[in-house]
Simulated assay, not measured.
Amino acid sequence: MNHTVKYGGFWIRTAALLIDTAILFTVFFIPFLPMIFGEPPQSITPVILIYAAEYIVALAYFIILPVTSWQGTIGKKLLGLKIVNEHGEKLTIGKSILRYLSFSVSGFVLYIGFIMAGFTSRKQALHDMMVKTYVVKSRTSSVAEPISGQAAFK
């Protein structure tokens, strides 16, 4: 039995991002607690090291999690979403890196690239269109209707 893919729209994707932001904020805030409530560091080196570590964690979070069996971040997993390529398959590490790098384009002019997810037929934000990815509801069995000239999701 074939069902049409259900795409993750703007509001559920926004909710997932808010969850991710809360998680990352908490993780990033904890290393600074000793500096906030204790003695200030004697040099800038610890601050730079913490920021560098946090940047690496954020990269891993948004690049590595989409290529795992979860196919998305913790926020997406909690809300029943996953990120797939144009064939409905898990992203490769290369595609995930490109998707992450293209986030900045989506946010470039008043976040219009993100808002596009609320108005496109397949609920794609600009960065999804750029790298041919989709955010789909993972709690539905699905076989997509093929786009002309493209293979259907499996």
Rank of each mutant, 00 (worst) to 15 (best):
residue 117 A to M: 06
residue 39 E to S: 15
residue 4 T to G: 09
residue 103 F to M: 05
residue 35 M to A: 05
residue 137 K to Y: 13
residue 124 Q to K: 00
residue 47 V to G: 03
residue 79 L to W: 01
residue 153 F to M: 09
residue 129 M to D: 08
residue 16 A to C: 01
residue 83 I to Y: 01
residue 11 W to K: 07
residue 22 A to Q: 08
residue 35 M to W: 13
residue 53 A to Y: 04
residue 8 G to Q: 06
residue 111 Y to I: 06
residue 8 G to Y: 08
residue 134 Y to T: 02
residue 74 I to M: 10
residue 41 P to F: 11
residue 14 T to L: 15
residue 117 A to C: 06
residue 95 K to N: 13
residue 10 F to Q: 00
residue 114 F to Q: 00
residue 77 K to N: 03
residue 19 I to S: 00
residue 48 I to G: 01
residue 5 V to T: 15
residue 126 L to H: 02
residue 65 L to T: 07
residue 44 I to D: 13
residue 68 T to V: 13
residue 125 A to S: 09
residue 60 A to C: 15
residue 41 P to W: 11
residue 113 G to F: 02
residue 83 I to D: 10
residue 142 S to L: 15
residue 41 P to E: 10
residue 10 F to H: 03
residue 17 L to S: 03
residue 84 V to P: 10
residue 86 E to P: 11
residue 137 K to L: 13
residue 128 D to W: 05
residue 150 Q to K: 12
residue 67 V to K: 06
residue 44 I to Y: 10
residue 16 A to I: 01
residue 142 S to T: 14
residue 73 T to Y: 08
residue 9 G to V: 11
residue 94 G to N: 13
residue 65 L to C: 09
residue 76 K to A: 02
residue 114 F to K: 03
residue 150 Q to F: 15
residue 85 N to P: 08
residue 86 E to C: 06
residue 123 K to G: 05
residue 96 S to E: 14
residue 137 K to M: 11
residue 44 I to E: 12
residue 81 L to Q: 04
residue 102 S to G: 07
residue 123 K to M: 09
residue 46 P to E: 12
residue 98 L to H: 05
residue 96 S to M: 12
residue 36 I to V: 15
residue 65 L to N: 08
residue 153 F to S: 06
residue 9 G to K: 13
residue 80 G to V: 04
residue 7 Y to D: 06
residue 122 R to T: 09
residue 145 E to W: 14
residue 33 L to G: 09
residue 69 S to T: 15
residue 37 F to T: 12
residue 139 R to M: 12
residue 97 I to P: 12
residue 15 A to S: 07
residue 70 W to M: 15
residue 29 F to D: 09
residue 92 T to K: 05
residue 42 Q to P: 03
residue 43 S to F: 04
residue 128 D to M: 04
residue 141 S to M: 14
residue 14 T to M: 10
residue 81 L to N: 02
residue 12 I to A: 02
residue 10 F to W: 10
residue 107 G to S: 06
residue 53 A to E: 09
residue 149 G to Q: 04
residue 104 S to R: 04
residue 9 G to E: 09
residue 127 H to T: 02
residue 151 A to F: 13
residue 124 Q to C: 07
residue 87 H to Q: 14
residue 67 V to F: 11
residue 122 R to P: 12
residue 105 V to K: 00
residue 52 A to M: 10
residue 17 L to H: 09
residue 24 L to E: 02
residue 122 R to H: 15
residue 136 V to S: 05
residue 25 F to Q: 10
residue 90 K to E: 13
residue 118 G to K: 06
residue 15 A to N: 02
residue 5 V to Q: 05
residue 97 I to A: 12
residue 76 K to G: 01
residue 79 L to S: 01
residue 7 Y to W: 13
residue 29 F to Q: 10
residue 6 K to I: 14
residue 15 A to K: 10
residue 6 K to G: 03
residue 3 H to A: 07
residue 117 A to Q: 00
residue 13 R to N: 00
residue 45 T to V: 08
residue 113 G to A: 05
residue 126 L to G: 00
residue 31 P to L: 10
residue 100 Y to L: 04
residue 2 N to L: 14
residue 99 R to P: 12
residue 80 G to A: 05
residue 66 P to F: 08
residue 72 G to I: 04
residue 78 L to P: 07
residue 113 G to Y: 02
residue 46 P to N: 05
residue 141 S to L: 15
residue 57 V to S: 01
